[in-house]
């Protein structure tokens, strides 16, 4: 098994693990983490595709991964901020219910 194949296989395995987390695990924060794991899996596959044994590796997948990381950060941040706002609203609602 060559190096690039090991990385590719692990990348796809990570994608599968993330998919499992997103669909099966009920906790919302774990779901958001799962999406990030899926992203890392895809990035590994991309980097492996750019691996060039004995030569200069292909910079295009590296650039794609860098862009992908920024996009993943943005998506994660938006998800977390939505979770925070939902949590606040739910807590406010619970406070109102608790008040006599």
């Amino acid at each position: 098994m060559t190096q690039d194949l090991i990385y590719s296989v692990c990348g796809i395995a990570l994608f599968g693990i993330g998919l499992y987390g997103l669909i099966i695990v009920p906790h919302i924060l774990q779901k958001i983490l799962a999406v990030n794991i899926m992203g890392v899996g895809v990035f590994m596959l991309l980097v492996a595709a750019g691996h060039n044994p004995g030569g200069v590796s292909d910079p295009v997948p590296h650039a794609m991964v860098l862009t992908g990381i920024v996009v993943a950060v943005a998506g994660t941040a938006l998800a977390l901020s939505l979770v925070c706002r939902i949590g606040e609203l739910q807590r406010d609602g619970a406070d109102e219910e608790a008040a006599p």
Partner: peptide, 30 residues
């Protein structure tokens, strides 16, 4: 609250969709 919950679900589905797409693109580039 319903709008934020719908938005969060929309976001997770959207991210899942994008990542499936990106995995397909990674395979094509490979």
């Amino acid at each position: 609250l319903p709008a934020l919950q719908a938005a969060l679900r929309y976001l997770l589905v959207g991210l899942l969709g994008s990542l499936c797409y990106l995995l397909g693109v990674a395979l094509l580039y490979r």
